[in-house]
Nucleic acid binder design. Structure first.
Lengths: 332, 332
DNA sequence: ATTAGCACTCAGGAAATTATAGTGCTAGGA
DNA sequence: TCCTAGCACTATAATTTCCTGAGTGCTAAT
């Protein structure tokens, strides 16, 4: 249990460091809190021992450790109202009723990225939660046709394929069979059902069923591992002073560019009970100097995750406010 | 007109520099060409005067200038056959007949990016070349519906909208009116036609036509400025030694991340007569140290541009071979 | 418990040093 | 006239040295 003064000092250090990105020394503390530098040093040294603070080198000031940030967020951060300007910018988007939901989400996170200089990620609902609603085929030119797949959440995937020597009528027959037989199946199970429930039947009714079946099969396998990941402001982090080494930059870009990794990072849900989840440092799975704040949203028609990725030294209060605000507005 | 020896020296310098990224000095040349270092120096100094070579500082070796690269490509580069390994890797993709064309393209450029460490860009056909083929509406849940737009090239765009207090029947009527009235219109003209040819008519037949009209109008305006730009291997350039300054990196990322800029860069077609176009240095419009090699492809059903973006010091021969190979294979 | 005082540490920047990989130019030789 | 040996010169890049400033930890006194 920390003393009142220790709490004050920790809070001070976190907030100071978030703003200026420079280790905080005893002098500054002695001025802000009413005490001598020596006392401040003693307290800091204690806080370091508990693991809430760190030094960058033996004679440097202190910076918060990952645990320090977590403690701060849980116990010290005051949840003021949102900045007016933040709120106003987002409200413009949400008040525009002509925007589709997905546009609202991406536009609002675009705005957040611009305001904060952090990166945003939008992760669509995963393929298990999407049920096949409808497929459709549109002939394009000679032997080509576009296959369109729609899920109950309104996600659409399409693929143009070329089938030589196949009657379009046969394809249409296949489509209507699929629509009749397996509508409502979770997308990630469709290829299985296709094999066991559809293949035997089209074998009877459709000519060239081998070719046609294969084409559809491929469309669905592609769709499965393709749930949408949308990254906004991918290079915002370059603005932050802590990312000046080329090695670090490479590492981070590689993670942010890899949809699989990003999906893993944002989708893993350790604690379903919480609205907002925060992963700091190593826990972010990106870089020891980064942090991830994320939340799930759920509407009548869709669900997904939105996340903000920034330096460990993030404006937590602000970002949390922003995310909560967006979540609320989406869900309405 | 350059002498034989000058040509040899220029070629040597370009190829050496492409490989090692280090200015080439007279010693190396004197060894490879049969002459003394002093002669090499004289020749280099002449080549510099013509503008084919440059120095990085007063006492450095020489590097090719943008004009130097251009001269090299036009006159000196020998067009050997493709590297076997390059060809084999691509053939695996093109021989897989189950892949849709668009997948072939993106997969093959993915492979190229991986092999060469350059960035690839795929630019879809522009909205003027796409004609409206079909629109379709799929109801999703309560008041939501997904509108799907298909073009004659097989491009599909979709948007989920929410319309309160609107009968789905009215929406369907609107859809079939649009399909009857303006199918075949270039996508970038659809919103106009929508206004002048469709709006007056749905006004008569459809309830709540204001709302419905607005929704469709927005779908199409979004679609218009949305012709697909696909970037592969965006951070490959970090591998190159010439991009180690943070400022440069930021600048390049900003361009590569901005679809509008990228579209401008890759779509501008100075010279329609040529198959392959090359823009080096400033001309690349990205960075003075970068170059762009691009080509258009055209199939029965679709067309677009593929481009490779890399350092000025690119393996031109290899990349040209790769692009030509891909282009040919796409067009078949 | 707090604090003044002091010795100590380390990062970071400036200046000095050296090594090295090149150049340009001159003058002599084929 | 073309080539080349030789030499003085130059700029970078790497290494070292030195210095400063911002900070610490510890001890002893309040």
């Amino acid at each position: 249990m920390l003393t009142k003064r220790q709490n004050n000092i920790l809070k001070l250090i976190v907030e100071e460091y978030i703003q200026l990105a420079k280790p905080v020394g005893s002098d500054l503390i002695s001025k802000k809190i009413n005490c001598s530098p020596a006392t401040a040093r003693n307290e800091m040294s204690d806080l370091e021992e508990i693991g809430l603070l760190e030094k960058t080198h033996t004679s440097s000031g202190r910076i918060p450790s990952a645990t320090g940030y977590n403690y701060y967020i849980k116990n010290l951060m005051d949840r003021k109202k949102m900045k007016k300007s933040d709120m106003e910018k987002l409200e413009i988007i949400f008040n525009n009723h002509q925007l589709a939901l997905s546009d609202c989400i991406s536009k609002s996170l675009q705005v957040v990225s611009d305001m904060t200089s952090y990166t945003s990620v939008i992760l669509g609902s995963n393929s298990h939660d999407n049920l096949l609603k409808l497929i459709e085929v549109v002939p394009i030119g000679e032997n080509a046709m576009t296959i369109i797949v729609v899920t109950d959440k309104g996600h659409v995937e399409n693929k143009t394929i070329v089938l030589e020597d196949v009657e379009i009528e046969d394809v249409k027959k296949t489509v209507s069979l699929i629509n009749n037989l397996i509508t409502g199946t979770p997308i990630d199970e469709v290829s299985m059902k296709l094999e066991y429930e559809v293949k035997p039947i089209i074998g009877k009714y459709v000519n060239q069923h081998e070719q046609i079946y294969n084409a559809f099969y491929h469309v669905f396998t592609d769709f499965t591992d393709n749930n949408s990941v949308n990254v906004v402001g991918k290079n915002k982090f370059l603005e932050q002073p802590e990312f000046s080494s080329l090695e670090k930059i490479k590492g981070i870009y590689n993670k942010l560019d890899n949809k699989d990794i990003l999906r893993k990072i944002t989708s893993k849900n350790n604690d379903d009970s919480k609205d907002i989840e925060i992963y700091i440092g190593e826990e972010s799975q990106i870089d020891e100097d980064m942090a991830v704040i994320k939340t799930k949203y759920k509407t009548k028609t869709d669900e997904g995750t939105i996340a903000i990725i920034g330096p460990k030294r993030m404006e937590y209060e602000r970002v949390i406010n922003l995310l909560e605000f967006i979540k609320e507005n989406i869900e309405r």
